[in-house]
Design a protein around this nucleic acid. Sequence first.
DNA 1: TTGAAATTCAAACGATGGTTTGAAAATGAG
DNA 2: CTCATTTTCAAACCATCGTTTGAATTTCAA
Lengths: 206, 206
Amino acid sequence: MTRPSEVTRERIMKAAERLFAERGYDGTSVRAIVTKARVNQAAINYHFDGKDGLYREVLRAAFRALTENQLKHAQELGAMSREQALTEFIRRQLHPLMARDEYSRHMRIFNWETVRPTPVFRSLLSEEAAPFMGLSADLVRRFLPEADHRTLMVASIWLIGQCNVFLRNREQLAQPPIGLVVDEDAVGWLAELIGRWVIGGLGGHP
Amino acid sequence: MTRPSEVTRERIMKAAERLFAERGYDGTSVRAIVTKARVNQAAINYHFDGKDGLYREVLRAAFRALTENQLKHAQELGAMSREQALTEFIRRQLHPLMARDEYSRHMRIFNWETVRPTPVFRSLLSEEAAPFMGLSADLVRRFLPEADHRTLMVASIWLIGQCNVFLRNREQLAQPPIGLVVDEDAVGWLAELIGRWVIGGLGGHP
DNA sequence: TTGAAATTCAAACGATGGTTTGAAAATGAG
DNA sequence: CTCATTTTCAAACCATCGTTTGAATTTCAA
């Protein structure tokens, strides 16, 4: 059974996630959230102990969903050639380019955090970023088996960052004078292209 | 002679630049600005016609300084080998890693804009981004002389984005569990490393 | 020195922010 | 059904926000 309190909680979370992603923490008012969620003004304080508490909850949920989604397909990469695995990893990173889905909403919330990290985010990152970093490191190690720890780490970060420009500036890039519109087909093409460059850079055989 | 109005204007600009970079537009109040600048409350409205006008001014100044700084050294790149030029370009991009200087403050203001671009920024970008993109495109073209327009453009964007992860997440990366602290020497090392990967990816000879 | 223009200032304004309140309504175990 | 608990609600509260006001002060050409 879904207790009535659960449905308003869920409504608030959903509305808040969208608004936080769109306008950031400072940019969204609790009044905007309760209006979008069609709940009472005081509901946020009752259920989440204030705007801060709600944001913390939204952030945790986004983080969990995001890492789960990436790690879920981690084992598949092990079965591929290193070149295939790397291209697949990149393709998955580029996925938010295709649609304004839940996934890309979570990414947006994270983007706000990279500009000015909240303490919640900092701890979340230091506690749970390891598996994701590890995934990238595993991919890189197959190309640089003899690299020292520091180089390997930098390479992992570098790999993670390969798609960021395209993700972060999607809207700007779509407009003149660039005009780079990316549909489903184009994502595959883009992943291939970036994949080839990354593989070449790491000394693979594209 | 420096008119008295000029010094308060300058004080406001300076304080505002720092605060906007640190906390973003929504996160900084005009009261915080006037306190930091040690000017009267109404000064912002008198000199800049409101918070919006001040922000516009700060943004324009940051943009101008940033592009000038890159384009000023553009011609030097032409005299180098393509590999040298590309590494130098990357080193220059990594420059803000070294110190909390004016340059990195401008970068931060831009980072806020990439999350949620203001109309001012949009127009600024569409009007004046061309030369900077062109610089990147020139570098890339020396490696991909036969690439079509679309590929060349994507490659240019890709090149510009190579250093973003390190710049944007500097604070986080410096902390555990990564612990990537970057001093002046390390920037050179990092530029070499990234340079080699990019060159390799574009089919050069690292 | 004079006087009009430019600039500074303290105070207040209206709007919006997050949060609190106390009562009303809904819920569900006994 | 009963009644204690949980949940919703409209209204108000208080702080902060960006901006305005009108007078005081400073500036500088005449």
